[in-house]
């Protein structure tokens, strides 16, 4: 079985998926990433899917699971490089990738993680902002 390499760049783990993954490879990546997050103490994970010409429900679920696992381990996940045709197909398939942050490319992804970390240092997590009270007439 092929394994997807995980690179450490500063405080970020970078995964660039370059192969058409079998389901087993996708599951192994989930486990490898969780171990590397803990081993390195990294606070950000970037998954580059530029080379993927499809994302089906299995890979979509893998991306959601990685994002959830990372969050529990105090790391942010950003998926970058989704091709337009892949985005169109995902939506039609019915997959909304809930809970996954996306950015256009690796650079933007790194910026997003840096901003997230800076915000976290200043205030409490604000994933669920309280809706502004509407002014009554």
């Amino acid at each position: 079985m092929e394994r997807v390499p995980i690179l450490k760049i500063g405080d970020i783990l970078l995964v660039s998926i370059q192969v058409d993954m079998s389901d087993q490879t996708a599951v192994a990546l989930q486990e490898d990433l969780a171990e590397r997050i803990v081993a390195t103490g990294c606070h950000g994970v970037i998954i580059d899917i530029t080379a993927l010409d499809i994302v089906d429900s299995f890979v979509g679920r893998m991306l959601s699971t990685i994002a959830s696992i990372s969050r529990v381990l105090d790391a942010e996940t950003v998926v970058v490089g989704m091709r337009p045709a892949v985005a169109i197909t995902l939506v039609e398939l019915g997959l909304s990738l809930n809970g996954i942050r996306t950015a256009l490319n690796v650079e933007r992804g790194m910026e997003l993680i840096a901003i997230e970390r800076a915000d976290d240092d200043h205030d409490e997590p604000d994933d669920d902002p309280v809706p502004e009270p509407t002014a009554s007439p």
């Binding site: 499809i54 197909t89 398939l93």
Partner: peptide
């Protein structure tokens, strides 16, 4: 199967979006 379908989809000149859709459906 994905690779076989991709090759066939290119051969019958499906658009890139349609190639992506049919390969994704085949994968499922």
């Amino acid at each position: 199967v994905r690779q076989l379908v991709r090759t066939a989809a290119v051969a019958v000149r499906l658009s890139l979006v349609d190639q992506t859709k049919v390969v994704t459906a085949a994968s499922e």
